[in-house]
Simulated scan of single mutants.
Amino acid sequence: MTKGNHSLVTEFILSGLTEKPELQLPLFLLFLGIYVFTVMGNLSMIILIGLSSPLHTPMYYLLSSLSFIDLSYSTVITPKMLINFVTEKNVISYTECITQLYFLVFGISECYMLAAMAYDRYVAICNPLLYSVTMSPQVCCLMVAGVYSMGLVGATTHIVCMLKVLFCKENIINDFFCELSPLLELSCSSTFINEVLLLCFSAFNVLLPTLTIVPSYIFILASILRIRSTSGRSKAVSTCSSHLSAVAAFFGSGAFMYLQPSSSNSMDQGKVSSVFYTIVVPMLNPLIYSLRNKDVKVALCKIFQKYQSSLK
């Protein structure tokens, strides 16, 4: 028994993505490959930005923070899921479950990091003469601190309320990780406050960044249309399209997961959505920002050239 909340349940069983044994090994290999690619991609992005002085700008400082969030977010979930693919019983202790739930703070932080990056692009394109002042190193540090603070506040609030929830008999979580909605389904006590908080925080964490991102891109689009230079317009569109792709992938899947009524059908649909925004999106972001960003490509080529010259 967990003394903190007088719960009879000391461990949970994760139902996972599928109950078909023949799919366990193929899925293990698939998600292992995705996770390895996620780690390598995001670590490479962080290291590349750190080593390349031309990338020591606010835009890439925020991008390296996004890569750290993606790396951390994926690491909180994927390794446990991979272990569950090759074990007979997908068990997670109550303490591990609550800990995993808390560190999903990185998901909340990503919402605000994408908003911060949208604001950075707005300043760079709409007010280029004031960019160095508006996006100074101090401002960037405060923005990143604010991003993590919003995540910590949300996570702490959810965990404090979750510790008051009782789990008596049911312990099978209809998901591949400890997510709030499936956990609340197992409660034998009132979860009204938890559900209201979940809905309010989910809506707030989607709407507030959206209210930053959408106006930013409206002004950005207006500015791009006024650019007469074809090369200048192309560069602005290229930079913004990468960020918009990341925003659409993350917010689209996240909103589908959270902003819907609880039901067994929606829970099963939510598994597919949660796989996308917790595992696939962290893998895609380094690809989006590297393949569609000329500065990153140039910096990468210079790093390879220095490495090759050092071997000679």
Rank of each mutant, 00 (worst) to 15 (best):
S264C: 05
R233K: 13
F250G: 01
K271L: 10
T210L: 15
Y73N: 07
V39R: 02
R228W: 07
S189L: 06
N5G: 07
T239G: 00
T278C: 09
T157F: 09
C301R: 14
L183G: 08
N174H: 14
V147H: 01
F256M: 15
L142Y: 07
D175H: 10
F304P: 01
R292L: 14
E185V: 13
F167Y: 06
E170C: 08
S7P: 07
Y258S: 10
L291F: 07
A236E: 00
V36L: 13
C178Q: 03
F204I: 14
L14R: 00
F304L: 15
I279F: 06
S216R: 00
S238Q: 10
R292C: 01
E179G: 15
S44Q: 08
V139E: 03
S65V: 12
G254Y: 15
R233E: 01
T230M: 11
Y148K: 02
L8D: 14
L287H: 02
Q269D: 11
K164Q: 14
V275P: 04
S189R: 05
V133K: 14
N5E: 11
I173Q: 01
V206C: 14
Q305D: 15
S132V: 07
I125L: 13
I77Y: 01
T57F: 06
C97M: 05
F250L: 08
K3L: 12
I83V: 09
I218F: 09
T78V: 13
S266M: 10
A236L: 00
M117I: 12
L284T: 04
Y258N: 13
I303W: 11
C111Q: 05
A255H: 05
T230N: 08
T278S: 07
I77F: 02
S53F: 06
R226L: 13
H158G: 02
L163K: 08
R292F: 12
Q308I: 14
T99H: 05
I159E: 10
T99V: 15
I218E: 04
Y217P: 00
Y102A: 11
K3P: 07
Y289T: 03
P79E: 07
A124D: 03
E19F: 08
E96I: 02
S64V: 04
T10G: 04
N285E: 13
V214W: 03
F85H: 03
T87S: 13
N205V: 00
E179Y: 10
S190M: 11
S234T: 15
A249K: 05
A115C: 08
Y73I: 06
C188H: 05
A299C: 10
Q260G: 03
G107R: 07
I193E: 08
P215F: 10
N90T: 11
Y73Q: 09
T99G: 02
M162N: 03
G254F: 14
I92A: 05
K302S: 12
F201M: 07
I47M: 09
G33R: 10
E96L: 06
G270C: 04
V36F: 08
V9F: 01
